[in-house]
Simulated assay, not measured.
Amino acid sequence: MVDFFHLLLLFLLMHIICDFYLQPKRWVDAKKAKTYRAKELYFHSLLHGISLLIPAMVFGVDGRAAACWVVIVAVSHFMIDLWKVTSPNGEKLSCFVLDQALHITVLAAIALYMTDGVSIAEVLQHQQFSDALLVVLGYLLILKPTSIVIGSILKKYPISGTGEAKKAQVSGIVAGGELIGYLERLLILTFTLVGSYEAVGFVLAAKSIFRFGELNKNADRSMTEYVLIGSLVSVVITTLVGTLLSLELKIK
């Protein structure tokens, strides 16, 4: 019996190798310039289809089923990539995420169909699925919702100053600080989940060193307090989420 998660994992491995490592930049540029007339688009799509012969051999899938995999993945990849290169928003992150989500959905559907006697309900009830869903929930919580919480707290401690100087300070913190906070929380949660607390300390120390030079030049004490409050709230929330997730996963 073919396990759904093992088959999907191998599918995803082939997808990542073909999409990001075996696709030269000139292929990407050619697809954008010539769209459906680019031979590179056909080569790339066919490569994705043929790559699934490896999982087929690993799991002992018969030739007819393997041929269906090749055709379905090659055609669907062609259509999805063609949509992406012809879309006016094709360069945006949201378009990239949607593009990858569609590819993965096709692979997941094939894996689900090929898994003997497994229904969607059984997949949803699988221990690995519930664990993965819990981890995804944790990552979602530490991103936008946590930013909103931090922003609400910081509103109670406004930066002193007036005029353009204050606007410049706030603009700098909001524009770069939010992205830095996202990356910091992603690293802290990841290291917490794998039990690498030393790495968490390294992330905090590295950020403190860079921030120290910036804040040391700033004569405004309120700016220093503003940044410290935001950083500490960010670390506390992420650490709590990571600890609770770790405890829940161990209990399961």
Rank of each mutant, 00 (worst) to 15 (best):
H103W: 04
Q127R: 12
C68I: 02
W27K: 04
Y113L: 09
M57W: 08
L137D: 02
I16R: 10
V97L: 13
Y157Q: 11
W69D: 12
L10E: 02
V2S: 11
V200P: 04
I54F: 14
T238A: 07
G49A: 06
S119F: 05
A109N: 09
K34I: 02
F4T: 03
Y21D: 09
V235M: 15
M223Y: 12
G195Y: 03
L47G: 01
A108I: 03
V170I: 12
T239E: 07
I16T: 10
R185F: 03
Y42L: 15
V2F: 11
T190M: 06
C95M: 12
M114D: 01
T239R: 04
L249I: 15
V235H: 08
L244S: 08
Y226W: 04
L240D: 05
L179N: 13
E248N: 12
H6R: 01
P24F: 11
P158R: 08
V170N: 00
V61Q: 02
S152I: 09
A132R: 04
P145F: 10
K92W: 03
D62T: 00
L134Q: 07
P88V: 07
L12I: 07
V70L: 13
G176S: 10
F129A: 10
C18A: 15
V227R: 03
E91I: 00
V58F: 14
T146G: 00
S130P: 00
A30Q: 08
F43V: 10
I120C: 08
M57T: 09
T162S: 10
E214W: 02
E122P: 00
V233T: 14
S119N: 06
S246I: 09
K250A: 14
G177Y: 02
K207V: 08
R185D: 11
E248L: 15
M79C: 13
K167S: 05
F96W: 10
T243Q: 11
N218V: 02
A219W: 01
T115Q: 05
Y139S: 01
F43E: 11
L187V: 11
A30H: 10
Q23G: 13
S45G: 01
I173N: 00
W83C: 05
F78H: 12
L112I: 00
K156V: 07
V136Y: 04
V170H: 00
L140E: 07
P55A: 06
K34G: 11
F129S: 09
P88N: 07
S87N: 13
M57D: 12
L98Y: 10
H6F: 06
A109C: 13
V61T: 11
K31M: 06
I229A: 02
K31P: 04
P88G: 09
H15I: 09
V233Q: 03
E214F: 02
L10H: 14
F96I: 11
V203A: 05
I110V: 13
L134M: 15
G195K: 08
I237Y: 08
Y197C: 04
Y226F: 15
D131Y: 13
T35S: 10
V227G: 02
A56H: 03
C68M: 08
W27S: 13
F129G: 06
P88A: 10
L46G: 03
V58W: 12
A165S: 05
L189F: 06
Y113K: 04
L8I: 02
R64H: 10
E184P: 02
L141G: 07
I104K: 09
K166G: 15
S208Q: 02
I180L: 11
E40T: 02
M1S: 11
G181V: 00
K156N: 13
Q23E: 15
A199F: 07
I251E: 08
